[in-house]
Design a protein around this nucleic acid. Sequence first.
DNA 1: ATGTAATACTTCGTTTAGCGAACAAAATGG
DNA 2: CCATTTTGTTCGCTAAACGAAGTATTACAT
Lengths: 166, 166
Amino acid sequence: MTEHHRDRIDQSLIALRRILRATELYERDLAQAAGLTSAQLRVLQLVGTSGSSTPKALSSTMGVTQATITALVDKLVARGMVKRVPSIADRRQTNVVITEEGRSRLQDAPDALQQRYVQAFAKLADWEQAQLVASLERVAAMLDAKDIDASPVLTTGEINAVRASD
Amino acid sequence: MTEHHRDRIDQSLIALRRILRATELYERDLAQAAGLTSAQLRVLQLVGTSGSSTPKALSSTMGVTQATITALVDKLVARGMVKRVPSIADRRQTNVVITEEGRSRLQDAPDALQQRYVQAFAKLADWEQAQLVASLERVAAMLDAKDIDASPVLTTGEINAVRASD
DNA sequence: ATGTAATACTTCGTTTAGCGAACAAAATGG
DNA sequence: CCATTTTGTTCGCTAAACGAAGTATTACAT
């Protein structure tokens, strides 16, 4: 592997970390401004876009256990953002439904990414936008591929081997 | 704003969310495999790359309060990963220094992004790598610009106005 | 030089997020 | 009809994070 390849890996990792960090920090500020925590806001947004969802679905979408969802929904229920409606089709299930109060709160608390991103994106030239979308989708595919490697933890040695593999 | 512009914004936001989610989920798994929590690992990595850092610096880099850093450093000290060394130049300051134990732990716990990313990145064609780096750096600049907008919270109306602004 | 302000860090008490284990209720498949 | 699986909740616990208050230490203004 040549030097500029290694440089590019480092550069893109640094850029990705900046993206992660900026979003994370901003998400906290935003949720606080909306009077919710970021985890609660994420749940509210998920319920809001679909109109209704089950704890099981929320759990797998967010990547947390159902027990955690129960606690988050409890808090949103206590604040009147959301209500639990027993499912008729399957009586094990509970539908988490957004309320009017919840909807209007969502209006005041737009998505963290949207706020930062949309304004800047609109300023880019057409070809830049197209390229950006293509690149982001490629990175996303790279990262959330379910089977990048069977082993959950790669040792440093293996990583260096990959990096040296040309 | 034409339809395909709006589509592109949506597509890129979706891609960014996939990136964020994949990294977040993976970070948890990885830290657990390394016997540390992800917050502790982040501190250890920061201290490890610079060799030594102050709580104040860690605090602003990570975007948390100093009280939080104190607690995290306490835990790393208890596990012998890191030690506190009083600063000589400024006696208010404490240097957090990585130990041998900490270094070797870092070897076993590579960065969450690295693991997922490096393998896939190496497989891309040269021109794709170059384009990816350029795009990622552009997004990062867009997101962590300190002055995207003076107002901390943008209302939905304003966002829609931006999206309709051409 | 001396008093005041700012900085660096810690301690303490509290809230939130998240997990695993144990459980009840309902659905599914023999 | 019975065993198994799925769905959701409760409980007890750990970790992360915050703000407020407190202690040193340094910087600054007069």
